[in-house]
Design a protein around this nucleic acid. Structure first.
Lengths: 244, 244
DNA sequence: TCAAAAGTGTTCGTGATACACCCATGT
DNA sequence: ACATGGGTGTATCACGAACACTTTTGA
């Protein structure tokens, strides 16, 4: 018998076989109402809150698994994903919350159940258009919702640390890669974009400098239409130019 | 019976238990004779060449495992290590070379042997002082030696890709983090350091600009002693200043 | 007409680029 | 003396910081 072949249903979901000892945790960032948001799962019976995550099928590419996991929670396709760190400390895997969840779900298990073993987790962060996301709970966590980055509760295991590291990675990537647009809707003003940058970097930026910098990148396309609304000059709308 | 408990010796080494499906591959960079070098393992019977690598003990921190693996091959302690990417494509694990090695080592196995399963590998790069390294083979690979980065042979699995990605990471980190000094001996001239930078970045740098940039970082300490040797002005020796 | 925010012009300072020059040293 | 490479001085340019000014819009 192949000891890598599971002899039981591995979660409440299906009997599909996953790699053991390895997981994916996803920090899904969204931006709304001048605030950075993170998508979190909550298991209401026990109150455990955790990052969306999942496992890798035995014949699945790691990056495909990350895409699948984020797609399942958001309902989106073609998501911007970035691997940022592997969390591999032995002590990070406190089996207690998972055990509570198994008990509450009436999943038969003993202390050697694979979900109670030590896990190493690959951290991904995703940037999504907040307005397009339809959060979907999974079979274990019965709630999936946006949390303001400023008021994240105590999360399962080291997930608070993972979020901090994801944010740090996002900040350093922001200047090097051109990824902020993934957090915006198709059309946006430079003012909106500046607020996003200021929120992520947590500091004020100078408007003239910011505008020139963004426009000099040559990846923004000015849309002929203009904004309508308030008592001041109408800003231009821009869209990210796909044809580089 | 605990299916995670191995029922056999897992390598030729010892009976210690490793996590399955997860490995570490290390790109160990050295600098010598105006060339970037990489430490590679070669199994002479089959001619397979591979990156130094290893597995994670079931109760070991991931980063500790990386340190251990690099220490075992180099004989060094306190090595500069950086996690840079996780290689997780399903197709990356061609079992053929490992099978040949097992056969040549007279290790009993069937096709379900854990070393022949699919592996996801965490990539680390290490920066070491070439002159201090004493390369040590392991129980499987009977040679461990420096290879010029410009002439790397075809390696096992996707290890050539891993090296390329490590080099790319090293290049981007070079400007952001202050890590080049890990590749130098304790005392060095600015000329030496410039050659190192030029080699890594693969482009010429302007001497005056480079010197001012390095000195303006405020992390170099000029040593009173001077060089002795050739028919020109003696350059100053510097050392990396630990007291930032 | 005025307030508010968008967009542009201009000055200033820093740091990189590029080149010139002087310094120390062995042959 | 002189070739060789190390170290420094200096002019120029590019870019961001900082601020001023004009433009557009609704009340």
């Amino acid at each position: 018998m192949n000891k890598n072949e599971p002899s039981e249903n591995e979660t409440g979901t299906t009997g599909t076989d996953f790699m053991h000892g390895l997981a994916i945790d996803a920090v899904i960032f969204g931006f709304h109402d001048h605030q950075l948001k993170v998508l979190l799962m909550r298991y209401n019976k026990t109150g455990v809150v955790a990052l969306p995550g999942g496992f890798i099928h035995k014949t699945e590419n790691l990056n495909d698994a990350a895409n699948r996991i984020v797609s399942e929670r958001t309902g989106l396709k073609n998501i911007y994903l970035e691997q940022f760190y592997v969390f591999g400390d032995y002590g990070r895997s406190d089996p207690r919350p998972m055990k509570d969840i198994l008990i509450a779900n009436n999943i038969t298990h003993d202390d050697n159940h694979w979900l109670l073993q030590r896990f190493i987790s690959v951290g991904y962060y995703a940037l999504v258009d907040f307005t397009k996301v339809v959060p979907k709970p999974d079979t274990i966590f019965d709630s999936c919702a946006w949390y303001d980055l400023a008021i994240i509760p105590k999360l399962m295991q080291d997930h608070n640390t993972i979020i901090l590291k994801a944010l740090a990675s996002l900040r350093t990537d922001l200047d090097n890669k051109l990824i902020a647009f993934n957090l915006m809707q198709e059309e946006f003003t430079l003012g909106d974009l500046q607020i996003l940058y200021e929120t992520i970097l947590d500091k004020k930026l100078l408007r003239p400098a910011f505008q020139r910098k963004m426009l000099s990148l040559g990846i923004l396309e000015r849309v002929a239409k203009k904004w309508t609304g308030a008592a001041h000059k109408a800003p231009y709308l821009y869209r990210f130019s796909k044809n580089i």
